[in-house]
Design a protein around this nucleic acid. Structure first.
Lengths: 196, 196
DNA sequence: TGGGCAAAACCGACCAGCCGGTATGTCGCA
DNA sequence: TGCGACATACCGGCTGGTCGGTTTTGCCCA
């Protein structure tokens, strides 16, 4: 309980409002009202509205990175690892769907240096993913007729798009969705019959 | 040339600015300055800032719908038609990438009724696409173990994501990208060896 | 146990500036 | 002379952020 409940409450309210109405369209007043605190209290914990947004990005980036490292450290065949990574990032993204929506929609609202920082860490994440795909290509299990960058983009497009159609209240189960999307990706990724 | 150049110039400037900085973060002043006209001139052709945004949506929706209808009317096997539709929507999206970026990022900035209108027409578009997939399933050429809605979402996620990684100045050719992404989708869509 | 007290937490009135939108004026052309 | 096509000055409202002041907390020492 080192952190005040204020910072948490404000962050939670901000995520929800940013996801629903966008960053620029959400006033600090709205956030503090939704969080049930005052503006003074908020500015005691955050330097600026931008700071608040960056905090959301940082938490999500740290979470994803930690999961990725843990799965890779666990080891296994390239195909097993890649599958586990795909399923995990999809499941995690469903759990953090509001944060994800903010992530993609409000990047350009961040101050330039922080935007670069986020982009840098995101690229590092993609590079680790791309490395797995490349390894699979080298092992001869994945197709090589399509650039790795496009294959990576093809997968993350699904992650990105989740918040546009998935509803937790809907009929689809979280785990099932993650596995089905992973299956679609890996199916298109495998070598076709003909040798390259 | 029925419309004044003012409306066109303003729309063009708005698309570019909305795509780069977002709708809420772009002021009317910025738009008219970039377009080289005055605010009075702009408000002579548009009722509001919201009107300007809706115009962008409408043009893109009309364009996509026209293309889709034309391709379906042209006929062919289900597989041929679906492939043509996929390639076309991807190519068109690359041509209208800024509009596309605005489309997905600024939907919730529209007034509620107009937002519904856009959603309605977009759903109609997706339904036509889904109909093709369903037909392919009935013909036994596409897999049936994954809900159609998810298959549709899987494809449009790539369309959506284009503006996040594709660069017209980059090495990838527009047509090639469209065909490769279509290939990835159709590969994952086909029936696997085992009968369902 | 409790009094003292600094520091941290919090409050809310306030500000300058920018926002979308408008009212009114001007100009050229039919 | 009238009318559409703009220009310009201006408005109320809201924004992110500030700041002087007040309350609460935590700790030390008698």
């Amino acid at each position: 309980m080192k952190d005040s409940h204020v910072a948490d409450d404000v962050t939670r309210a901000a995520v929800e409002l940013f996801a629903r109405q966008g960053y620029a369209n959400t006033s600090v007043q709205q956030i503090v009202e939704a969080a049930g605190v005052t503006k003074g209290a908020m500015y005691h914990y955050f330097e600026s509205k931008d700071d608040l947004l960056f905090g959301i990005y940082e938490r999500l980036l740290n979470l994803q990175k930690a999961h990725l490292d843990e799965i890779i450290a666990r080891g296994g065949t390239t195909d097993e690892v890649l599958r586990a990574v795909c399923v995990d990032v999809l499941e995690t993204s469903i759990d953090s769907m509001e944060e994800g929506a903010v992530f993609f929609r409000s990047l350009n609202m961040l101050s330039a240096p922080r935007q670069q920082e986020v982009t840098r860490r995101r690229r590092a994440y993609h590079d680790e993913f791309a490395e797995l795909v490349s390894r699979g290509q080298a092992e001869g299990i994945y197709r090589t007729d399509i650039p790795v960058a496009m294959l990576v983009a093809h997968f993350f497009s699904d992650v990105h798009y989740l918040s546009h159609w998935y509803s937790p209240e809907g009929p689809e189960d979280k785990t099932l969705v993650a596995e089905q999307l992973t299956d679609l990706f890996l199916t298109s990724l495998r070598r076709t019959d003909a040798a390259p």
